[in-house]
């Protein structure tokens, strides 16, 4: 039965130490390693596991961006996705427009489930899944660390500040993944070769009738104020003395 759509964002690799450009115009991305946003990778892993359990027939990955994002789609195909869709654009899109685009894709693909990361590790917005669910008028389960499907409904465990919250909802729905949902598989060399032959379709904003807007203008980018390296103490007694001196003990 059915189909799962997984959204993959091309983002700066999580191991890269980000540096702000001296003129404050952004962060340095030239020559920086790019990867699939790690939360999206977890989302894809979950979709693949659902397919491996026989609870869905097809996993489709979608990415929005320049042709460079085909690299991330190919990674998704190598992990095991069946086919890929690229929405080609040169624009840097805000979450609301990303959600609008995804609604268009949903209208044609009609998936039972959309899985994506709870946030991308570049902009840290944590908005796209929720906005998509709102525009689509469907349930959302964010910060998910456990997901069970049963027919036309699903149950999700969400990692919330108070602990673990369980909700039940009707399908189709939008799921955003948290870190402990699973551990994504490693891609093997033969799978990378196989992925090259899997279908990758391309569409663009005009075809989808979407005109992107800049609603949030970034005026400048600064480095955060640095914390100074403090004082080293020799033992517990010295530590307590130091705390007392600062009125903290």
């Amino acid at each position: 039965m059915g189909k799962i759509l997984v959204c993959l964002k091309r983002a700066v690799d999580y191991n890269v130490r980000i540096r702000v450009k001296p003129d404050g115009s952004g962060v340095i991305t030239d020559g920086v390693k790019m990867s699939v946003n790690p939360f999206d990778e977890i989302a894809l892993e979950e979709a693949l596991r659902i397919r491996e359990k026989g609870e869905t027939d097809e996993v489709v990955v979608v990415s929005i961006g320049t042709d460079a994002c085909q690299q991330q789609l190919r990674t998704g195909l190598a992990m095991g996705a069946d086919r890929a869709i690229q929405v080609r654009t040169e624009h840097s899109l805000e979450p609301l427009d990303v959600a609008r685009i995804l609604v268009r894709i949903v209208e044609t693909e009609k998936p039972d489930l959309i899985l994506l990361g709870k946030q991308a590790i570049d902009g840290d917005n944590n908005q796209t899944g929720q906005m998509l669910a709102a525009l689509w008028g469907r349930p959302q389960a964010t910060f998910v660390s456990e997901l069970k499907l049963s027919g036309t409904t699903a149950t999700a465990v969400r990692e919330v500040d108070a602990g673990l919250e369980t909700i039940e909802f009707d399908l189709p729905a939008v799921i955003t993944s948290d870190l402990r949902l699973n551990e994504p598989r490693y891609v093997k060399m033969p799978d990378i070769m196989k992925a090259k032959r899997k279908p990758l379709a391309t569409t663009d904003l005009e075809e989808l009738d979407i005109t992107p807007e800049t609603r949030i203008k970034v005026v400048k980018t600064d480095s955060p104020p640095a914390r100074q390296k403090g004082k080293m103490v020799a033992d517990a007694a010295e530590l307590v003395a130091e705390l007392k001196q600062r009125d903290l003990a």
Partner: peptide, 23 residues
Amino acid sequence: STTFGKDLMPRVAALLGVAQVSD
């Protein structure tokens, strides 16, 4: 910007057709 607010506010913004500023 707790899990409560992060879950809720983008859904509100999308219903209103506006962007959200996070954090």
